[in-house]
Simulated assay, not measured.
Amino acid sequence: MPLQPADLTPAPAADRLRSLIPRLFPGVMACAVVAAAAGFLGEHYGAPTLLFALLLGLAMNFLSEQGPCGPGIAFCGRTLLRIGVALLGLRITLAQVVALGWGPVLLVLLCVALTIALSMLAARRLGFQGLFGLLTGGATAICGASAALALSAALPVHPQKERATLFTVIGVSALSTFAMVAYPMLTQALGLSPRAAGIFLGATIHDVAQVVGAGYGISREAGDAATLVKLLRVAMLLPVILLAATLTRRAAALSSNGSSAVPGEPAGARPPLLPGFAVGFALLVAVNSTGWVPGWAQAAGSEASRWCLVTAMAGIGMKTQLRDLATVGLKPVALMLGETLFLAALALVLMRWLA
């Protein structure tokens, strides 16, 4: 049957995609350039790449205020961020969790749960919303800047959300770098065995890269233990995202007289119980646990996740005014420092019985 003229008409979805790409391209390219520069600086100076991406993005925030880059920057700060979080699932398998034994698993569960609970309580006592404590506590207890970005994506839209996320990323990156230097010396002063030192480092240092550097700086045994414990903390990202999504739904459900409790969302809108990127994260963990994913695919997915997160961080930095961060005050700093010290002390106490 010959094609009719109507059959040759492009589908509406194709039309939207064709019109969307030119709008997004300038901003996406700007974020990609910043991400590449941040990667270069991170590799040559040994500092967190995400932190460099944030600082460079802040320096170029004028791009989001004027010109054609705004839509692409917003795309990187939201959609690309969620893709990067989902791809984190390729770092973890259930076999890695089982290999640790029940002691370190229980230790991580208690550390994450108690740190986040205390953070939410302390945030309220300091005059902040409990969700700010969930953001900072989750970043401290799970996997640093990556967790901060993932939780931010799951939390409701709020005028101060970007500022809170940026402050959390800056704080957790600085504290993680300090911990990478100080904690190995602490384990030596306490006379911990290589395995015990690795468990402590994996349970307390914020970012994955710093955990690896600190652990293998002691010994191979310590590095292996630190990496596995850290990956277990990364696996806790899924239930904590579920908690954040549940709290967001509850806030939306509490809206009265037809108005939304979540600024920026239409009245009556309720976010999904589990965001799509969290479902993707869980599915990739499950698939990765089958052993069907070849090593090169795991490495490629992990690298793609890293670059998505770096590019997203550049976009978030571009969307934020630096003068807004200067007004956070001392209370948020004290909150994050207290969370870090509490996590380290709790891990040392629990290790006496669980590791």
Score class of each variant (00 low, 15 high):
residue 286 A to K: 14
residue 346 L to P: 02
residue 296 W to S: 11
residue 353 W to I: 05
residue 92 I to E: 02
residue 316 I to V: 14
residue 90 L to P: 03
residue 56 L to W: 05
residue 144 G to S: 15
residue 33 V to P: 01
residue 8 L to G: 09
residue 142 I to M: 06
residue 27 G to L: 02
residue 28 V to S: 02
residue 187 T to Y: 10
residue 271 P to L: 10
residue 53 A to K: 12
residue 45 Y to C: 07
residue 172 V to P: 03
residue 329 G to W: 09
residue 49 T to A: 00
residue 116 I to P: 02
residue 318 M to S: 06
residue 353 W to E: 00
residue 92 I to S: 04
residue 238 L to Y: 12
residue 347 A to N: 08
residue 57 G to D: 03
residue 177 T to C: 01
residue 340 T to C: 00
residue 307 W to F: 13
residue 210 Q to M: 14
residue 280 G to C: 05
residue 131 L to W: 11
residue 146 S to W: 03
residue 265 E to G: 10
residue 37 A to M: 14
residue 146 S to D: 01
residue 74 A to H: 15
residue 194 P to E: 02
residue 337 L to G: 11
residue 324 D to F: 04
residue 302 S to A: 07
residue 227 T to V: 07
residue 157 V to S: 08
residue 259 S to E: 06
residue 19 S to R: 15
residue 235 A to N: 10
residue 177 T to R: 11
residue 318 M to K: 14
residue 45 Y to P: 04
residue 252 A to E: 06
residue 157 V to Q: 14
residue 287 V to L: 10
residue 35 A to R: 13
residue 92 I to L: 08
residue 40 F to H: 15
residue 99 A to R: 11
residue 47 A to T: 13
residue 90 L to A: 09
residue 286 A to N: 11
residue 191 G to N: 10
residue 72 G to I: 05
residue 145 A to R: 12
residue 59 A to I: 00
residue 111 C to V: 15
residue 353 W to A: 04
residue 186 L to S: 08
residue 121 L to H: 08
residue 15 D to Q: 15
residue 308 C to G: 06
residue 35 A to K: 12
residue 193 S to V: 03
residue 352 R to G: 06
residue 23 R to H: 08
residue 283 L to K: 11
residue 212 V to K: 13
residue 194 P to D: 00
residue 106 L to C: 11
residue 264 G to Q: 12
residue 100 L to Y: 01
residue 242 L to Q: 08
residue 27 G to E: 01
residue 76 C to Q: 14
residue 134 L to H: 10
residue 21 I to H: 12
residue 145 A to L: 02
residue 344 A to S: 10
residue 172 V to W: 04
residue 342 F to P: 04
residue 30 A to L: 03
residue 240 V to L: 04
residue 265 E to M: 09
residue 164 A to D: 10
residue 116 I to A: 04
residue 214 A to F: 03
residue 130 G to W: 05
residue 332 P to S: 09
residue 182 A to M: 12
residue 348 L to K: 13
residue 14 A to D: 01
residue 349 V to G: 05
residue 118 L to I: 06
residue 13 A to Y: 11
residue 296 W to N: 08
